[in-house]
Every structure is written in structure tokens, then in C-alpha cells.
């Protein structure tokens, strides 16, 4: 089996002065896969995402998207290859309406009219169609998260990176994104970072565990959750 992974990191290193945030990470995600990434605070998960999306240029190592090297490309160039990301900190156009937020993403690949259609459809899917005319800066946290997800999806990405999509959401909202993530995954590969283990159990198959910038374990979700090493560095602390 030699299918090309949708995204692959080879010996990726990201150093900030003396801090090695990502330490020799090699990881590959198959097209259509849904990969979960877990690990304690400061393990380097967000930094890893930033290296994949060009927000940071890795100190060394290589990133390949669909088999082609993308290391060193600028963020917007990587985005145009159809890599979508929801960052850990909210990133929205706060002064614009929800509809316009989503439309701007759709507009990259479509003319005005088609972009409008796509934006409406995506917002419907995330249950935020009713918020279309509201200015995003005035929405509640969970609603903003949903609008940001809609924004990411409206770019019609081939790969979606989600950094803590369920953080600070109500149970109902979490349920909705669980459903939507499963649905998106029928056509698109995803990598999801989350601390919410219940959420992870709901969606995960293969889980990669980060610890101190490196990959600690990579295995099926059940095996990972019962792994003593993982319990020791991460889950144990959460339970305590």
C-alpha cells in the first residue's frame, strides 16, 4: 500500500530560542482519515499546526501536502492548496457579519453568486444561518466557534486542522460539531486537537499523543486511552 498521505511531517523541529516546542516530529495522515492529536498543555500541538499552515517556518524538517513539499510556503499559499484551519485562539472578522465572514472564505474559489450560495449552505449545516446578519464580534463564544468552523469549511478544504474546536462550547453545540465533523470526514481528512476526552472518544479512531514536543504514542483510540505511559503524562493528571 503506497497511497500518498494528505499531509506528512518529516523530522519537524520548531525551536523558540532555547525552547524546543516541536522536537523531531514525523507524522503522516492518510487522505480521508480523521486523526486526533492529544497531549498536555505546552506539548507543542498548536505549534505543530502553525508549522503545517505556514504561520511559522519550522527550524528544520519538511512538510508535504499531497506528496508535494510545502515547507516555507506562505500561509495564504498553503490555504490556497485547500488546507483549512481553526486556530486555538478565535480568529474571525469581528466587525463583519457572520455571513460575510463565511462568504469571504467561499469567495476565494467562487464568483460572488456561487460564494453566496455556498456560504448559506455551510451556515445552515452548522446551525448558524439565523445569525447570518449579526456582527460576529457581538456573538457568544460558542456561536463564534461555529461561525469560524463554517468559515473554514466554506474554503472547501481537502484537509482540515481543528485546534480545540469544542473548547468552551455548550453540550448542545459540542453535539452539533461532533455530528458535523463525522459528516465532513466522509469527504475530507481532518486532524483534531482536543482536551475533551469524551469528545475524542466520540470521533476518534487513530490518536497521536504529543509530549514535550515529540510523539509519545500513536495507536488506536482504545489502546491509547489505556496506555499506562499516556495515563502517566496526560490522562492521569486530568483525572486527578
Amino acid at each position: 500500500m503506497t497511497t500518498t498521505p494528505i499531509i506528512e511531517a518529516r523530522n519537524l523541529v520548531m525551536r523558540f530560542g532555547g525552547v524546543v516546542a516541536v522536537n523531531d516530529v514525523s507524522l503522516s495522515v492518510a487522505d480521508g482519515e480523521l486523526r486526533c492529536l492529544i497531549g498536555p498543555n505546552g506539548a507543542g500541538k498548536s505549534t505543530f499546526f502553525k508549522c503545517l499552515t505556514g504561520q511559522l517556518t519550522p527550524t528544520s524538517g519538511e512538510v508535504l501536502f499531497d506528496g508535494k513539499p510545502i515547507t516555507g510556503l506562505k500561509s495564504h499559499e498553503i490555504a490556497r492548496l485547500r488546507v483549512g484551519i481553526k486556530t486555538q485562539v478565535p480568529n474571525l472578522f469581528n466587525g463583519l457579519t457572520a455571513r460575510e465572514n463565511v462568504w469571504l472564505a467561499a469567495r476565494r474559489n467562487h464568483v460572488d453568486r456561487a460564494a453566496g450560495k455556498l456560504a448559506e449552505a455551510v451556515m445552515e449545516r452548522f446551525g448558524v444561518a439565523a445569525l447570518a446578519k449579526r456582527v460576529v464580534g457581538e456573538l457568544a463564544h460558542g456561536q463564534r466557534q461555529l461561525v469560524e468552523l463554517a468559515c473554514v469549511l466554506a474554503g472547501e478544504p481537502r484537509l482540515i486542522l481543528l485546534d480545540e474546536p469544542a473548547a468552551g462550547m455548550t453540550d448542545e453545540e459540542v453535539e452539533r460539531i461532533t455530528t458535523v465533523i463525522r459528516e465532513i470526514n466522509r469527504t475530507t481528512a481532518l486532524v483534531v486537537v482536543e482536551h475533551d476526552m469524551q469528545f475524542i472518544r466520540q470521533i476518534a479512531r487513530t490518536v497521536t499523543v504529543f509530549h514535550q514536543g515529540a510523539v509519545l504514542v500513536e495507536d488506536h483510540v482504545d489502546a491509547v486511552l489505556s496506555n499506562p505511559m499516556v495515563r502517566d503524562v496526560y490522562l492521569g493528571k486530568k483525572a486527578a
Binding site: Q55, K74, S75, H76, G95, L96, A105, V152
Partner: peptide, 24 residues
């Protein structure tokens, strides 16, 4: 225009604009 909307997007959030493919 679509350029003007993109410029407004950049004004509102450069990171998000870049992450959806606009050359900020």
C-alpha cells in the same frame, strides 16, 4: 467590490484573512 471586501477582511483580522487564502 471583491477587492474591497478582501481589504475589509484584512483590516478586521490579518491572520484569518491569510488562513483563508488572501494575500494580505
Amino acid at each position: 467590490s471583491s477587492f474591497g471586501r478582501a481589504a475589509a477582511a484584512v483590516r478586521e483580522n490579518e491572520t484569518r484573512a491569510e488562513l483563508i487564502g488572501y494575500d494580505v
